[in-house]
Amino acid sequence: MNASIEATAPELEPAPQGLSGEVLPHTPISRVLDGLIRHIGEFSAWLWPVLMLVIIVNVVSRYVFSQGFIELEELQWHIYSAGFLIALSYALLRDNHVRVDLFRERFSFRTQAWIELGGMLLLLGPFIGLLLYYSVPYVIDSWHMNEASSAPGGLSHRWIIKSALPLGLGLVLLAAFSRFTRLVAFLAGSEVRHAD
């Protein structure tokens, strides 16, 4: 794992029990994908202070200058939805999705790895795959129809924000694939363990 991630590792989260990124070996694929996802995830995290400022500007203009902007209101949920969709893969990268550790911590690492491998193939893969498959025409449609907000003064070019959907889902699939290669490498008994 990258040192900077270690530094920001959430001291307030429960200690990682079970199969952590430490145990899993990296693969050439995972190194590239994880790097990509980490960069995108860390960059997109700066959307939150931007969202905060947009809200502040809107509040000030509404209550001080008595002028509300529907564009700014819509911009708020545009930023928020891009933010959470992109963060999905970042959380997967850091293995930070909610799970029930009750029995898991008693399983051996190999069992845990097998379970996760199976889960990715049978649960996560098909689910995200289906959503991704249907989200692409969803965006193309919106682009074709030149979809705009139906609110007076709302934002146009809806396809841009709708693209965050396949983008976010695609990144989740990449993050899952990256972890998948690491799980396979681990189960294949690779001795290589990278600290970086």
């Binding site: 509404r62 008595s66 002028q67 509300g68 529907i70 209101e73 139906s150 609110a151 007076p152 003064g153 709302g154």
Partner: peptide
């Protein structure tokens, strides 16, 4: 002018032209 109003559809557009601050 300056009215904060919730109005859907074209009616909202019209009030906006007249200076209302329209939300949906």
């Amino acid at each position: 002018d300056g009215l904060k109003i919730r109005y859907a559809g074209i009616g909202g557009r019209i009030l906006q032209e007249l200076g209302a601050s329209v939300t949906v």
